[in-house]
């Protein structure tokens, strides 16, 4: 099995990269943004007993990472199927 055409191969890679870029932006904003760069501003907001910035740095970013990886695995599964390059 391989791609049906050159065109398909290019589109597959382009869609893959665009998905990666979107998810990496979220990755960056949540960890480096909310957890580090904007932490002081976010700490003015309370989330239960947590300061929000502190929560992002020690809890929220990890939950976000998990969601990102699982979303990527699922979306790539669909993309593989769309272009007929899945292994099942």
């Amino acid at each position: 099995m391989a791609f049906r055409s050159e065109e398909d191969a290019k589109n597959y890679w382009r869609e893959n990269v665009s998905l990666m870029v979107k998810l990496m932006i979220i990755w960056f904003v949540v960890s480096f943004g909310c957890g580090i760069l904007f932490v002081d501003a976010l700490n003015n907001i309370q989330l239960g007993g947590y300061k929000l910035g502190f929560w992002f740095a020690q809890q929220g970013s990890i939950y976000t990472f998990l969601v990102l990886i699982w979303y990527y695995a699922k979306a790539m599964g669909k993309l593989d199927a769309k272009y007929g390059v899945n292994e099942d």
Binding site: L23, W27, S31, G35, I36, A57, Q58, I62, I69
Partner: peptide, 9 residues
């Protein structure tokens, strides 16, 4: 915490 988990992404 972030450094040792974010790498998995």
């Amino acid at each position: 915490l972030m450094g040792w988990t974010g790498g998995y992404v």
